Simulated scan of single mutants.
Amino acid sequence: MPLLELDGLHLQAGARTLVAPLSLRIEAGEQVALIGASGAGKTSLLHAMALALAPAAGSLRLAGEDAWSMSSSDRHWLRRELMLAPQQPPLPPRQRVATAVLAGRLPGASFARSLRMLFSPDEAQARLAFEALDRLELGDRLWSRVDQLSGGERQRVAIARLLVSQARLWLADEPLSALDPQRAERVLAVLQGAARAQDRTLVCSLHQVDLACRVFPRVIALREGRLVYDGPPQGLGARQLDEIYADLLNEPPSAPQDAALAATPPQAMCR
């Protein structure tokens, strides 16, 4: 039985289609890269997988449960199976980094244990947070306040939260966007290694197409909200990549990252 199963899932915002009806099966333990130009629907799809965005049509089953046929309280309980690391993690500015990381352990924790983790983590909890941060080259930030962190450090705190969570499904939305290329590769290696070691399922959206094709065994590509490819990276040809990134190549770059992508021929990205 797949861990995550989407059947004819359609996402809508008013009259605007976010994601056209699509069907996907993601097995337990899989690692999947989600690619596409900005506005292709990657974030919307990840939010739907995180049960944060209700479908206009179709169904989503997580761990065998039809999420949107359940009561809201049962669906809230089902969310313990997943953890989402958004591109811009909403971390309270005055919160300590240790507390921000340990929030990944809150789903399923008792009320008393949750209070201890949030306000007075014990030695074992602090050690857990430190080890996750240290793997991401942030061990020295354990007791810093969130508002003292750079954007890239905040992204790594969100990834550390994934590492300590007990969720079976890890969803990461552009987790490398604020990192330099060398650190991005190291962070992704940590994330993938932890997912394998803990038998977690990882779905990760990336703008770094060459990296996605190099290290993920399965790539899902969206264009204008439509599924245009699902399979091994070796199957992505130059013509498909040209179509996926046509808008990006035809428009002037608006940011350094877009400029780097525009300078890279799509047909070279998945060789």
Rank of each mutant, 00 (worst) to 15 (best):
M1N: 04
L3P: 09
L3A: 06
L4H: 02
G8C: 02
G8N: 08
Q12I: 12
Q12N: 10
G14V: 09
R16S: 12
R16E: 13
R16I: 03
T17Y: 08
V19F: 03
A20Q: 13
L22W: 02
L24V: 02
A28F: 04
Q31C: 12
L34N: 04
A37Y: 03
G39N: 09
A40Y: 09
K42T: 03
T43F: 08
S44N: 08
L46M: 06
A48L: 01
L51Q: 09
A52S: 06
A54I: 02
G58C: 08
A63S: 13
D66K: 10
A67V: 07
S72N: 08
S73C: 03
R75M: 12
W77N: 11
M83L: 13
M83C: 14
M83R: 14
Q87S: 11
P89E: 03
T99V: 15
G108S: 10
A109T: 00
A112F: 13
S114M: 13
L115S: 01
R116N: 10
E123S: 14
A132L: 08
R135V: 01
L136I: 05
L136N: 05
E137N: 07
R141G: 00
V146T: 11
L149F: 10
L149I: 03
S150R: 06
E153S: 05
R156H: 09
I159G: 04
R161S: 11
V164C: 12
W170S: 06
L176T: 12
L179M: 06
L188Q: 09
R196Y: 09
T201C: 10
V203W: 00
V203P: 01
S205D: 00
L206P: 00
Q208C: 03
C213V: 01
F216A: 01
A221P: 03
R223S: 14
E224A: 15
D230G: 12
A238P: 15
D242T: 02
I244R: 12
Y245M: 07
A246P: 01
D247C: 05
S254R: 15
A260F: 09
A262L: 13
A263W: 11
P265T: 04
P266C: 00
R271P: 10
